[in-house]
């Protein structure tokens, strides 16, 4: 049953990613070269809608958060490594599958590379678990928890910042 839900959600997700034109190498690298903000417009829009929906349902007691644990060593070092690979490959894990779907055959090499990289990570995981994955462990922290404010205050702040950014993007035609 969960497989069917995963597939249907994925088809819709892939459809929207493709329609938003964010799967393309030119859009991804265009963003990283700061020439085209399409990807960021797409991401921020989904985040804004998502945060309102998620916290509304959490407030109503209908769903639960599933926050990943904060480990600064892991997220900072891992995040920076990811960024280097992202700029070379031109796709992230989800968009590589979508890019292949719209005919970008070269994304297949990226997918094979990611499978190899995941196997490599599994090999060195025992060492990382004792080192980087122990640096700066904060646990499952959210911004409202960290700042000691209501989550709607933080969401309001995000909306304000995003709107300023969107207006700027449209003014500069990015």
């Amino acid at each position: 049953m969960d497989l069917v839900f995963g597939l249907i959600t994925g088809i819709l997700f892939g459809f929207l990613l493709q329609k938003g034109r964010v799967l393309r190498f030119e859009k991804q690298i265009g963003f990283l070269r700061l020439l085209d903000m399409t990807i960021l417009k797409f991401m921020l829009s989904s985040i804004l809608v998502g945060m309102v929906g998620i916290y509304l349902l959490v407030d109503l007691g209908m769903i639960q958060l599933d926050v990943k644990s904060t480990v600064l060593g892991a997220q900072i070092i891992g995040g920076l490594i990811f960024g280097v690979g992202w700029a070379i490959l031109g796709f992230c894990p989800g968009t590589a599958a979508g890019a292949l779907g719209e005919g970008r055959i070269h994304a297949l090499w990226g997918i094979l590379g990611m499978l190899a990289g995941a196997a490599l990570y599994a090999e060195v995981y025992p060492e990382l678990r004792e080192t980087l994955l122990k640096w700066g462990v904060f646990g499952k922290v959210t911004l409202p928890g960290l700042l000691q404010v209501n989550h709607w205050v933080v969401i309001g702040g995000f909306f304000f910042a995003a709107m300023v950014f969107f207006v700027w993007c449209e003014k500069k035609k990015l």
Partner: peptide, 21 residues
Amino acid sequence: GAFGGGVIAIFGARLAGGCPS
């Protein structure tokens, strides 16, 4: 390039505990 970039990207993503999604 795509293969090498993929190796680096997923290694970083797994260390970070997630990707842009």
